[in-house]
Amino acid sequence: MSTASRGMDLPAEQAWKLPSRGRVGMLSLIIGESALFTIFVVAYIFYIGKSLTGPTPAQVLEVPILGTICLLSSSFTIWRSEHAIEHGRMRAFAGWLAATILLGVIFMAGTAIEWHKLIVQDGLTIRTNLFGTTFYSLVGLHATHVILGLSMLSVVLVLALLDRFPASQSERFAVIALYWHFVDVVWVVVFTVVYVIGR
């Protein structure tokens, strides 16, 4: 409470501004999710090199450069679509949104190919060793979040294409975009831990 306001009436016209509940709620959720990921990341780091049997990350992991580039650039495309809907440019909005989804799908496809190779070719499953357990859990947890994000974005895209997602919903879209940014940031951490430190 500032000294200036003490003892004075709150001027009626003085704006009483509070943060939007959607953003506060999403930020809170992100804090909670971060704690969830932290635990999985810590477990991954703790178990690096502790597997009793092979295969080791160095033997079987390939760095998913394409997927990573796609996912990270989708943060840019979703930011463009946020910008577009704020300014009421609905076609640009739908376009950038579709691009975001496409990039996300490419990322997921990359993960699917990687997992297929690991399971079929290298015989690494979640039961094989500690590396398998921690790897599939951590990357899988992230992938679950990507899929969740993609589903939400797809619903929005379908509504937008049907002209049912007006510009007045931009605030809600911003909340979804916030989630998507979070998913991207988590990937930076997961990528660093799994493919850089852990390899």
């Binding site: 477990a43 502790k50 597997s51 979640i126 039961r127 060793n129 500690l130 357990t133 859990s137």
Partner: peptide, 11 residues
């Protein structure tokens, strides 16, 4: 799923 997070036999 047969993971090994807390499986002391598998390290």
């Amino acid at each position: 799923l047969g993971g090994h997070f807390f499986d002391t036999q598998a390290g």
